[in-house]
Computed example of a mutant assay.
Amino acid sequence: MSELIAKRYIKALKNDMDAKALENISEIFSGLALSFKDEKFLNVISNPAVSSQDKTNIILDAVKSAKSEKVNNFIKLLGENNRLNVIPSLSAALNKDIAQSTKTYTGVVYSDSDIDASVIKNLGDGLGKKYDSKITLDFVKSEFNGIKVDVEDLGIEINFSKSRINDQIIEHIAKAI
């Protein structure tokens, strides 16, 4: 539900701003979205005993350094409509929208083995050529026994499990015999 609301707000922002301004607002809202992961902050924002105006002022104080009247007015609008809770969804949807318009995506490589940074860069470049985009991959060490590449915004998920590859080799050898 909050995703649909967020998309409406993004549509309004896109009509009012150029691409550079949208990227700047995206950075601001990404920072705000991180605040919603803080339990104390979330308790204040979701507390019905705290007035809507006080909640709005808290968020306005958080973005004061941006010195943007458009951002301030937008946050006031969200506060007036009791929509401050859509900020994380708004941030995610705005980042996704910008990624699609600029064809710039980020993804994650998961593996239980260390992978050289040049291999990860080459993997990102190769996927980027295939999907006519710029794809940047980050490495995350995990329990996955193999390699898994995930670029969520493009809907790409590729995995190579060591056990599955071993099973396929054994099956292939058995068929050859």
Rank of each mutant, 00 (worst) to 15 (best):
K7Q: 08
L154E: 10
G126W: 02
V63Q: 08
V119E: 12
I28H: 07
E23T: 07
E27P: 00
E3L: 12
S52T: 12
D116C: 05
F74G: 09
V50S: 11
A19N: 13
A99Y: 05
E143G: 07
T136R: 08
I5V: 15
I10G: 12
N122H: 11
L78V: 10
D125G: 05
K7I: 03
F144L: 05
A49H: 00
L42M: 03
T136H: 07
D54Y: 03
S163Q: 11
T102P: 03
T102W: 05
N95G: 14
K175H: 12
S35G: 02
K148I: 04
I173S: 09
S133K: 04
S52L: 08
A21Y: 03
M17Y: 11
S35Y: 08
S113Y: 04
A62K: 10
K7L: 09
D38Y: 05
D125T: 11
A6H: 09
Y110A: 06
Q100T: 01
E157K: 14
S30H: 05
D97H: 11
D132M: 00
D61V: 01
V71C: 13
D54E: 15
V140G: 02
F36Y: 15
I28R: 02
N73L: 09
N159I: 00
A12P: 02
F29H: 00
S91Y: 06
L42F: 06
N72C: 09
R164A: 13
L90I: 12
V151D: 06
D38V: 04
S163W: 00
L4I: 02
D116W: 01
K76H: 06
I98A: 12
E171A: 15
M1V: 07
S142C: 00
N95P: 02
S52A: 11
S65I: 13
L154A: 05
D116Q: 11
A174C: 10
